[in-house]
Design a protein around this nucleic acid. Structure first.
Lengths: 150, 150
DNA sequence: TATTGTTATACTCTATAACTATA
DNA sequence: TATAGTTATAGAGTATAACAATA
């Protein structure tokens, strides 16, 4: 049972992450030719890292059910962002991959977000940025990263 | 035009916020009687702070269109989380407020998230937590604080 | 006429249940 | 029989366009 002091820390972390997410969300969704939703962005990001991932892999990463991801992928395929092929080894599986168009859409959205955040960080002093980086490092080390499913 | 070093910082911040959001999302949506989506949670959080806010206030905070928020509020009203009344001063406006049930649902979800994050932070040393808090403080100072009129 | 909100319509996001195909 | 996905159905999340009511 965490102490009150740690519960207070947790509140700060949650509020800050939600605030940060608001900036990111606004940028991902801003006009722009290749408009993406946040879930779509997350799926493209995963497939960009894990070429050939199966639908189950993607569902696990997104923490969604298979039917939900199946339909979401329908949508991405329809838009030309993702390719869906039968796996060679196990014909039940599908191998998902970004198309060139999907890779372009993902990087375009990602670059926009990064540029927007960089503009904000540009206002900080070098010392503050160093403290920020250290804080991010600590937070990453505390958060469950990907697989370990509580 | 931010330097490459700052662009790298921005990447770290974005990745860390997305990772943190994943933990929060999983917890907000977890089992539990009063299941909420992330947007619903954000709306309840806003109305908890701003009793009597109008639909336009909420739409601005959420960065959504009025029709979208109108429907989202329909849903929250149907679930008994929110009350929608005509404003006294200006009959065009609606005054939104949490019901007791809505307040309960919000605090329950919020407490779950906080507890889950606190459990994770509990693994850190005291020095690491101090660094984390400092990093959060710096990040907050850099992010646009969504007209925080609390 | 301008502002606040709702309704109509159309996608996407997500779930559960029932199904198909492969192993 | 067990596993990987899809289809059916339903409700929430989101947008634009058209509308109604109040100021």
């Amino acid at each position: 049972m965490p102490s009150n002091e740690i519960l207070d820390c947790a509140s700060v972390v949650v509020e800050t992450v939600l605030l940060g997410m608001k900036t990111i969300r606004a940028e991902i969704r801003a006009e722009r030719p290749q408009e993406l939703s946040v879930p779509q962005f997350r799926m493209l990001a995963y497939l960009n890292r894990r070429e050939g991932a199966s639908l189950s892999d993607l569902a696990e990463h997104m923490e969604l059910t298979l039917p939900s991801v199946s339909r979401a992928v329908d949508c991405l395929v329809r838009r030309g962002h993702v390719e869906r092929d039968a796996s060679e080894e196990d014909r039940r599986r599908v191998a998902l991959a970004l198309t060139d168009d999907g890779r372009k859409a993902f990087h375009s959205a990602k670059d926009s977000v990064r540029m927007r955040v960089a503009e904000l960080l540009n206002m900080l002093s070098e010392a503050e940025r160093a403290e920020l980086m250290r804080g991010m490092e600590v937070l990453r080390s505390a958060l469950p990263t990907g697989k370990c499913k509580r």
